[in-house]
């Protein structure tokens, strides 16, 4: 899968793009690749990849995010340096995009900079989220994301989960929906993302793709994550920022 160099994660609001993108960045990092993580989320106020920036940098992953003093401003700030990393053929770039068509609109500004041949655009789907529970709904959301971002999805990610209540059945049922969506769209399912402790319980098979074990990074202040010696990095307690493209109080 890593013949591609630029990976874009789009999806409905709250579909888990950030967790999947961070874990995918760590996966590429483990393969010894030079990875750059770009926080392109201009719409979500809390739980964004910039919250994990310190830990990612410790691993040697470059993080492009708004400058620290503005990272919690309620302003849509594009991080500097995107153009140069997209042009640098030695770097693997992850673009973590905001949710829904509104969040994906920013991708349109990068049109022309995205290397068409090296590009993978992952549509992340959680079949237990309110507006992507059925194939038709999920397809409608993607169509609207593609229209506002002017970028087409090239692969699907099944990220179906229920937080602490996730079990293998939840992941597999979601997988059925995502597979059917994939067939209708004529796209492959390339990743099934699943909590690390459940990853071994998900069978490989047609329409599952790579099983990406997830270590959770976006946590609430009271989350008690059991010590995991194999954890890629410590969970980052929530800290924040935000905007909407509509008129709003700052």
């Amino acid at each position: 899968m890593s013949e591609k160099r630029v990976f874009v994660f789009v999806g409905a609001y709250g579909s888990g793009k950030t967790e999947v993108a961070i874990n995918y960045a760590l996966h590429l990092n483990k393969e010894g690749k030079q990875v750059v993580m770009v926080d392109l989320d201009l719409v979500t106020p809390y739980f964004r990849s910039r919250e994990a920036a310190c830990s990612l940098r410790e691993k040697g992953i470059e993080v492009l995010a708004p400058p620290r003093e503005l990272s919690r401003a309620d302003l849509p700030i594009l991080p500097p340096g995107i153009t140069s990393v997209l042009k640098n053929k030695g770097k693997y770039v992850i673009l973590d995009v905001g949710g829904d068509p509104t969040g994906a609109r920013v991708l349109g500004t990068l049109q022309g900079l995205l290397p068409v041949r090296d590009l993978e655009v992952f549509y992340v789907v959680n079949a237990r989220r309110p507006f992507t529970r059925e194939v038709d709904q999920a397809r409608d959301v993607l169509e609207r994301i593609e229209a506002s971002s002017r970028v087409k999805a090239t692969a699907l990610v099944n990220n179906t989960h229920l937080g602490d209540l996730t079990n293998p059945e939840v992941v597999l049922e979601g997988g059925d929906m995502v597979r059917e969506l994939a067939m209708r769209l004529g796209l492959p399912v390339k990743i099934t993302a699943v909590k690390k402790d459940l990853a071994s319980l998900i069978p490989n098979g047609h329409g599952v793709g790579m099983i990406l074990p997830l270590t959770r990074h976006m946590c609430t202040p009271w989350d008690e994550v059991p010590p995991d010696p194999g954890a890629d990095l410590a969970p980052v307690p929530l800290r924040v920022k935000a905007p909407s493209l509509e008129p709003t109080r700052d």
């Binding site: 609001y13 309620d74 309110p130 507006f131 935000a242 909407s244 509509e246 008129p247 709003t248 109080r249």
Partner: peptide
């Protein structure tokens, strides 16, 4: 309503 962070998902959701 009128949007304001961190509750703008409420109007957004009911608008749908």
């Amino acid at each position: 309503g009128y949007p304001i962070t961190p509750q703008s998902e409420v109007p957004e959701y009911v608008s749908r």
